[in-house]
């Protein structure tokens, strides 16, 4: 049994879910609070503008804060390069210097950050940008990549590299893989093979012996999946993996007999999980029907 199977089993079960209506109720209430908060926010901004005028008239100095900028224009440091970067102070994580809107791909840098170089696109075929940024005298390379509506960000110190060399270092395909296969023991997974963007990747020195495409109906649908047998440092490994975050199964010869055996095991685990969930849902449904019948009888 590999790490994923163990996690699957360890997290199965649990109490019944609350009714869907309860989930909805919490959401509706929060949405209502937010709408009210927005209306109130408009009043606060208006008050801030009025107060600002009064402050200027008394000659007091304006102080920079980490709070969201008011809805009035304020001076922001211009980027060193004429690139589409704007300044904003809203909701930044402590280590976040730049971000890309996942929908529009619009770039934003944090106030106080200066962009001095940019590679666009940084990775061929993807909406991606590499930036050379400076903040408070500290320099950092940042890579932003949008894949399937999700923007990932990575950064590092230049360490004597050019911006393009940094991008190349960040593009180790094995780091982009969904997951790993076993090496050494059943439970310690290290990357040997992975599936991403329709391609199988392996570490250097690993040889793909056999691939069975889409070996289990419904596994990781609608993504492509494969069962893979590969040879690495004289050991035969097996993997069942998909081109999505569905979790994968891995083993090696000796722990399982063949590629077909690991496929059968994975299929059995999927069936087991589906059966367990179906059984729970059936019981919940039976209980709800019984409760309604009881209420009806009481009336």
């Amino acid at each position: 049994m590999d790490l994923k199977d163990r996690f699957d089993q360890a997290t199965s079960g649990g109490p019944s879910h609350p009714p869907l209506e309860e989930r909805l109720h919490h959401g509706r209430r929060a949405a209502g609070r937010r709408t009210a908060g927005r209306a109130l926010g408009g009043i606060v901004v208006a008050a801030t503008v009025a107060t600002g005028v009064a402050t200027l008239s008394t000659g007091q100095e304006d102080r920079a804060t980490d709070r969201p900028a008011p809805a009035v224009s304020s001076p922001t440091p211009a980027p060193a390069l004429d690139i589409p970067v704007t300044a904003s102070m809203e909701n930044w994580e402590p280590e976040e210097w730049a971000r890309m809107n996942p929908r529009t791909a619009e770039l934003t840098v944090r106030r106080g950050v200066t962009a001095t170089n940019m590679v666009d696109p940084a990775i061929r075929g993807f909406t991606s940008v590499a930036l050379d940024l400076t903040r408070d005298g500290q320099r950092r390379y940042v890579l932003l990549v949008r894949r399937q509506g999700i923007v990932s960000v990575s950064w590092d110190a230049p360490a004597g590299r050019t911006l393009r060399e940094f991008v190349a270092d960040e593009q180790d395909p094995m780091d982009s893989l969904p997951i790993a296969t076993v090496r050494g023991t059943l439970d310690a997974s290290l990357p040997l093979v992975g599936y991403r963007d329709g391609e199988l990747y392996t570490v250097g020195g690993a040889e793909i012996v056999r691939v069975v495409e889409d070996p289990i109906e419904g596994f990781c649908a609608p993504n492509a999946t494969a069962a893979v047998e590969l040879l690495h440092e004289g050991v035969t490994y097996f993997a069942v993996l998909g081109d999505g975050n569905c979790g994968s199964s891995f083993s090696k010869l000796g722990d399982v007999a063949s590629l077909e055996a690991i496929v059968a095991r994975r299929r059995a685990n999927i069936d087991w999980a589906a059966d367990a969930q179906g059984e729970r849902q059936r019981k919940e449904l039976e209980r709800e029907v019984a409760e309604k019948r009881e209420q009806s009888d009481r009336r």
Partner: peptide, 12 residues
């Protein structure tokens, strides 16, 4: 190692 996210996705 359970959900199978990449290093980059996990970091994000």
């Amino acid at each position: 190692h359970w959900l199978g996210l990449s290093v980059r996705e996990t970091a994000t």
